[in-house]
Amino acid sequence: MTPGPGARPVDRDRVLVVEDSPEDTEAIERALRQTHPGLRTEFTDRGDGLADLLLEREEVPGLIFLDLNLPGVGGHAVLSALRARPELRDVTVVVFAASTAPGEVDACYAAGADSYIYKPVNFALFRTVLKGAVDYWQQQTRGGADPGPDADGR
Rank of each mutant, 00 (worst) to 15 (best):
A7Q: 10
T100Y: 11
Y136G: 05
V60H: 05
G144W: 12
G47L: 00
E58I: 13
F123V: 00
N122S: 04
G132W: 09
E42W: 05
D24F: 02
T2G: 13
E42A: 09
E59K: 15
A151S: 07
Y118A: 07
K119E: 01
F43I: 09
A81M: 05
G72S: 06
Q138F: 14
T100V: 07
T141F: 13
G6Q: 04
D11F: 13
R127W: 01
A107S: 09
P71E: 01
K119V: 06
V94C: 07
R8E: 13
G47Q: 01
A113R: 04
T25D: 11
A51V: 11
R40T: 12
A151G: 12
Y116G: 03
R46F: 04
T41H: 08
L82N: 02
T25A: 13
G103K: 07
E87M: 15
V91G: 08
H76A: 01
L79S: 01
G153R: 11
P71V: 04
L130P: 02
R154D: 03
V105M: 07
G132Q: 07
L32R: 03
A110W: 12
T92G: 13
V10D: 06
T2Q: 14
E19R: 03
G6S: 09
Q138L: 04
T41D: 05
T2P: 10
S99R: 02
D11I: 14
P9D: 03
R142E: 13
N122Y: 00
L55Q: 15
V10G: 06
D20H: 00
R46C: 08
I117F: 10
G148Q: 11
G103V: 08
V60Q: 03
V15A: 05
L16E: 03
A133D: 04
H36N: 13
L125F: 02
R8V: 15
H36T: 15
V94F: 06
D24G: 09
I117M: 14
V73P: 00
A151K: 02
H76W: 02
P120M: 04
A124R: 09
R83G: 12
S99L: 06
Y116W: 04
V129C: 11
R57I: 10
Y136E: 06
A7S: 08
Y136D: 08
V10L: 10
V17D: 04
V93N: 04
V94T: 06
V121T: 03
D146N: 13
F96V: 06
A51K: 07
P71T: 03
G132P: 10
Q140M: 14
S21F: 05
G72M: 07
K119H: 05
R33D: 14
G112W: 01
G47W: 00
A111N: 08
S80G: 15
I28N: 03
F123N: 00
